[in-house]
């Protein structure tokens, strides 16, 4: 059965496009975090952003696992627990399938933070509201994806991702057989949750 309605919200299949992570390509440069914070600043420029009070916040998190960096992004889950948990109607799914937070309705109760299994909703303690990924509605695609220099982040359809994974796996296979050399660690371990 297609995953259109999972309880704890994992990969969405009905959604048009979403952010996929290929952890093995991430070098931990945090360009995605920076681009995200800048896009969600008032000035939308790096130099403007760093002088703003409160400082603009990122909504994608490059987490460290030992010495490896792993970006974790919002999946705009099909059965979005954050939206189910929202006791004010601040988090809703829009007509494009994006799970968006209207911070004018947010009372900072942290229910969404308690529910999000990925830990990608955090609190802006200055404004007492939650902040989450909005997929950059003013841009053609998410700023984090555009900023990633190593193609570790991709914005594409679930089907596309699976197809491109297979293609990359074929390339890695060729590399192992003495052909083209893939990037460090190869591309063989996409985000298992996103690829599910």
């Amino acid at each position: 059965m297609p995953g259109t309605d999972t309880v704890a919200g994992a990969a969405r299949s009905a959604a048009p496009q979403e952010i996929y992570v290929v952890p093995s390509r991430c070098t931990g440069c945090r360009s995605c975090e920076m681009a995200c914070a800048v896009e969600h600043s008032q000035s939308k420029s790096l130099f403007g952003a760093i002088t703003e009070t409160p400082l603009p916040r990122r909504r994608i998190y490059v987490e460290a696992v030992d010495t490896v960096a792993v970006p974790v992004a919002c999946r705009h889950c099909d059965e979005a627990f954050c939206a189910n948990a929202c006791i004010t109607g601040a988090i809703r799914r829009d007509s494009r399938g994006f799970v968006l937070l209207d911070d004018s309705r947010c009372i900072g109760c942290n229910s969404c933070i308690m529910l999000c299994p990925f830990g990608v909703i955090q609190k802006d303690e200055t404004r007492h509201v939650a902040v989450k990924c909005d997929l950059c509605p003013d841009l053609p695609g998410p700023a984090c994806v555009a900023a990633c220099p190593t193609d570790a982040l991709r914005f594409q359809e679930a089907g596309d991702f699976a197809r491109s994974r297979r293609r990359t796996a074929a390339v890695v296979g060729a590399a192992a057989a003495g052909g083209v050399v893939a990037g460090p660690g190869g591309d063989a371990d996409p985000d298992p949750a996103a690829a599910d």
Partner: peptide, 20 residues
């Protein structure tokens, strides 16, 4: 963090709710 869960090869904690 979620990255730990993902990178330690552990199934995501919600995996058993995935539809068949």
């Amino acid at each position: 963090t979620y990255a730990d869960v993902q990178m330690r090869g552990q199934k995501p904690p919600y995996a058993n709710y995935m539809p068949m």
